[in-house]
Amino acid sequence: MWELARGQISAFGEAKPLASWAEDPRCAVNREALRTRLALGWLPEDAITRQRHDKPVLEHTFQERTLTLRGWADQSGIKYHTLYNRIAKFGMTFEEALLKGADGPDFTMYITAFGETKPLCHWGVDPRANCSTTTIRRRLTQGWDPEQAIVEEPQNRSTLGTGIPHRAYGLSMGLEDWARHTQIPVGTLRYAMDQHELPLESALHALGWSPQSEPAAVHDLITITADQLLPGDRVLGITTEGSPAPVLTVRRPPADQRPQPGVPTSLPSAQALPRLARPSSAAGLRR
């Protein structure tokens, strides 16, 4: 039972079980309301004495980050009332309620970044995440590299980047900003420039990007098995949890942009520039 798991509740220099505190003359609410308040993280003294409509701001700390319950709902993509009910009605701890993630398959697919593989909903509350779970998922569907999608702060592009500026097509930005602007992983840009000693504009041209390029297509994020892979799929994460065979999270391009079987594909080259091969670590796994 919840009371046994909670044990003795200490307040006002005393320690006694929930039932005794509910009968204490200082208690302003009934036993069930007191239980709910304590489950939500209220300080015992506040939970006992505050009137029903006098609610403090609730804050919860997870992995050294402290937010209000509503702030965690925004960060995690979990609806506020869902998060609240998991704690108040179903007796979950805050960590259990948070790590269960948002309802629906969009937030449970596995993503690999920084040498780790875990559900998207867990990346959203990871200390390295500088944006919400919803933003990370949207970025992944737009073709962002997983690590960049997690750590990039959602700020105005003109204020981003503190590294050495690189000039191309009349613009000057740091390489991280160029990666976000072009939606080409920063590792791919750096490899192209360093490996062939190219200026940024030539590297972008050789990789097939120009200011007149069509807007990046929105891809589908799906979970499949290995035998369901199609040409053009990019693997973002692999897990074997709960399945006898590996389950892959992939970003799948629209049907009209998939490579055709038997048709060789190559990167466009810039005049006499050597053809650039993207490093596997930056470009991801492709079938």
Rank of each mutant, 00 (worst) to 15 (best):
Q8E: 10
I9L: 14
S10M: 08
A11Y: 10
F12N: 02
F12S: 02
K16M: 14
P17C: 05
P17M: 11
L18Y: 13
A19G: 11
A19C: 13
S20C: 07
D24Q: 10
D24P: 04
R26C: 12
A28V: 01
N30D: 15
R31Y: 05
R35G: 08
T36F: 03
R37V: 10
G41Y: 10
W42T: 05
L43I: 09
L43H: 13
A47G: 08
I48H: 05
R50S: 09
H53M: 12
F62Q: 00
F62E: 01
T66N: 07
T66G: 06
T66W: 11
T68N: 06
T68C: 08
L69P: 00
L69G: 00
A73D: 00
D74M: 08
Y80Q: 01
Y84Q: 04
R86N: 04
I87S: 00
K89N: 14
F94H: 01
L98Q: 01
L98A: 00
L99E: 00
L99V: 02
L99W: 00
K100P: 00
G101N: 09
D103Y: 02
T108A: 14
M109W: 03
P119E: 07
V125C: 07
P127R: 07
R128G: 06
S132F: 05
T134M: 08
T134W: 04
T135C: 04
R139N: 10
R139E: 06
L140W: 10
T141C: 14
W144S: 06
W144I: 03
W144C: 09
D145S: 05
D145E: 15
P146D: 04
V151M: 13
E152H: 05
E153H: 08
E153R: 14
N156V: 05
N156Y: 05
N156S: 12
R157T: 12
T159P: 03
T159R: 13
P165V: 04
R167W: 07
A168N: 08
Y169S: 14
Y169G: 08
L171K: 15
L175Q: 10
E176V: 13
E176G: 11
W178E: 05
A179M: 10
R180L: 07
T182F: 02
I184H: 03
T188C: 14
M193W: 03
D194S: 09
D194F: 04
H196S: 10
E197F: 09
E201N: 09
S202E: 15
H205C: 11
W209A: 02
P211W: 09
P211D: 11
S213E: 07
A217C: 03
A217K: 06
A226T: 06
A226V: 12
D227P: 04
Q228T: 04
L229H: 01
L229A: 03
L230C: 12
G232W: 02
R234E: 13
G237I: 01
I238W: 04
E241F: 12
S243I: 04
A245N: 07
P246N: 06
P246M: 09
L248R: 01
L248W: 00
V250Y: 08
R251G: 11
P254N: 07
D256W: 10
Q257F: 09
P259Q: 01
G262I: 04
V263A: 10
T265C: 10
A270V: 06
L276A: 02
R278M: 08
S281H: 15
L285I: 15
